[in-house]
Write a protein that binds this DNA or RNA. Sequence first.
DNA 1: AGCCAGGCTACCG
DNA 2: CGGTAGCATGGC
Length: 229
Amino acid sequence: MGRLRRVFDALMDWYGPQGWWPLGPAVRYHKGKYDQPSTGREVFEVYIGAILTQNSTWTGACQAMGRLRALRAMTPRALLALPDEVLEEAVRPARYLRQKARYLRAIASFFLLLKGRIPSREELLTVRGVGKETADSILLYAHHQPVFVVDAYTRRVMAALGVIRGDEEYDTIRALFEKELPADEILYNEYHALFVEHARRYYSKKPYGTGDPLITGFPVKRTRQKDTA
DNA sequence: AGCCAGGCTACCG
DNA sequence: CGGTAGCATGGC
């Protein structure tokens, strides 16, 4: 039963590889070797990006990262050395500058303690500002662990397709994907990115899912959403 | 002019 | 527990 696989194939067919976290052009995707962030710097940039994009736009997060780069503060030590006002000003385009400045400090300290080790999900969740989606994003996009990232878009799309109700626990939805799909880092990477690409088009404004070709083109059984449970 | 971003924490009942 | 207010923005 490859429902989820078919959805992936359709999205991949329509949008192509997204090459997220964006370590290099999508070309490299086809070379089989997904360009892995090997240096500590690149890994740390994913940590930073994961915080900065929370409930925000990628453009805003990029602007903030550009400011940090200009300040030469894309390493944990350099970031921690910034005065509060400077760090907050750099974060501004990514929203919640006060909060995210705190979060960035927390995760920079955490990153230093790791000394290059890959953290567990539980460890990540102890960091202030790191919730489930952020933890999973870091595991997947920075450390290449086969963890499926669930976000608001994932819920909307899958609920519209009748695969879920939409109010399930985060971990329930993650488990569903990880059960139905092979534990493939690159697959999860692209899938999540494709969800974002697709949902930005059809699931940004209400009513969600209007004109979604997944719905018109993939008749998914939606007849018993309510009666079980 | 609104509406909406790739959430998280804290605090409420 | 579940539900939600609040969080120092900027682009389409």
